[in-house]
Simulated assay, not measured.
Amino acid sequence: MLSIRVLKSVLFHFNPAIGKQILQVGLSACFLIGPLLYCYCLHFLGRFQTSSLYRLHLIIPSVLIIVIGIVFPYHLYTQLWGGIFYKLINAVWLIYTVASIYILWPKLSSIKANDWRQDVDLYIVLSIVIGSALVWAAYFFAAYTSYISGALTFTFLMGIGVMTIFLHIQQQRNKTPSPYANKKIADKDAQALIDELEQFVLTQKVFLDANLALPKLAKSLGWSTPKLSQLLNDNLHKSFNDFINFYRIEHAKNLLGSDSSMKMEDLANSSGFNSLSTFYAAFKKYTQLTPAKYKALQGLQHSEIINP
């Protein structure tokens, strides 16, 4: 939506005679920025997937934009769009921005200063929220900042893009090293190593460490990092994340069975996940169900056992 807003400004700047409809498109995009930002934060926290009611934050504003755009087109109601509609758009944008900060706050306050680099996505989400708030301020105080509003929006979009690429490149560098074919572990030796690895993971419960990385696990085992990487990739045919997440999900399933009242955020943290969205994705990958559906299914089975 911010990109559409920038495109509108560019088109209008180079062709002032362009139809008024393009101005309506720009304001309509601004109206949707807030709701989309809020739903983006909900998705990051893993909440958007748990209830279809959250989709109303997208459906209702979209319907309003279409209906109002048809009933009150910009070229016939210029003063209305430049007056009350403009104020309403800014109010909705601000409300949703504040709501986004509110729902992110528990996650932000739980992250220690030295743990921030472990959650690249949180960096990106927080930057988007702060950047959106700054862009809102620039447009809201347009009488004083009109000369920087467009530049600020464009710079923000470019900055987010560059930062996202940079952080993910850094993340890729820290991932499992590529396997070397000429160092493949023989099958006769691999089974003993696999047994040792699985026994160590189960007894030490290292998978509960949200910051666990392949080099750290290799060091705990007294192995080299390439050796552990080879064993996982060539012999178990699994990535490091898949291997560890399997144990985390099994632990989460046990927790759900023993304490059905546990909140999803607590369940994710207790199972070694530092992101609720990562937990939801991993849980569904291994069980084909969301945690909520799995919890409900377990409760139904328990009820059938008690009341056959």
Rank of each mutant, 00 (worst) to 15 (best):
S303E: 11
K293M: 15
F166Y: 06
I4Q: 08
T203P: 02
S229P: 09
Q171H: 13
Q298H: 08
S220V: 04
L37F: 08
K263W: 08
L7I: 14
A143R: 08
K216Q: 14
P16M: 05
P61Y: 05
G272V: 05
R47A: 11
V10A: 03
L232C: 04
A99L: 15
F14S: 01
V125Y: 05
D119V: 12
N182T: 13
S100M: 03
L214D: 03
S258A: 13
L232K: 02
V98Y: 05
F85G: 01
Q170A: 14
T153D: 06
S220K: 14
Q288T: 12
L108K: 02
L122D: 04
L221Q: 02
D266W: 09
A252G: 08
V98P: 10
Y180N: 08
F246A: 05
Q21D: 11
V135C: 07
A210V: 05
I4L: 13
V92S: 11
I194G: 03
M264T: 13
W93T: 01
L221N: 01
A133Y: 03
P291R: 05
G19Y: 06
I124W: 04
E250T: 07
Y144L: 09
P215Q: 07
T290S: 14
L104H: 02
K284H: 07
D115M: 06
P226E: 13
I148H: 07
D209L: 09
G150F: 09
I4G: 06
V129K: 03
L214A: 07
Q118Y: 11
V92L: 15
F31D: 00
A190W: 00
N235G: 05
A138G: 08
K227M: 13
I194H: 02
F140V: 11
Y86T: 00
G82K: 10
K238V: 03
L36V: 09
I66L: 11
F31K: 02
F44T: 01
Q298S: 12
A181W: 06
A192V: 13
Y96S: 02
L32T: 03
V25M: 05
L122S: 04
G46I: 02
V63L: 15
F273Y: 03
R5L: 15
V162M: 14
Y180F: 10
F140I: 04
Y40W: 09
M163Y: 11
L152T: 02
H75P: 00
Y144K: 09
V63N: 06
L126S: 12
L108Y: 10
L56S: 10
V25G: 04
S224H: 13
T164N: 11
N90Y: 09
P106N: 11
P73N: 08
L255N: 09
I70Y: 10
I305W: 11
T287F: 12
N254Q: 11
S132R: 01
K219P: 01
K295M: 14
A186E: 12
V125L: 10
Q24S: 12
Y286C: 04
H13C: 01
L208P: 01
A192R: 11
Y294T: 03
S258F: 12
H251E: 10
S28L: 14
L2D: 01
S239Q: 07
L217G: 05
I65Q: 00
N174R: 14
F154I: 13
W105R: 00
Q24H: 08
L255G: 06
N15V: 14
G299T: 05
W116S: 01
T203L: 12
A186M: 13
R117E: 08
M262P: 00
V67I: 15
S260H: 06
Y144M: 09
K8W: 12
G150R: 00
T155E: 07
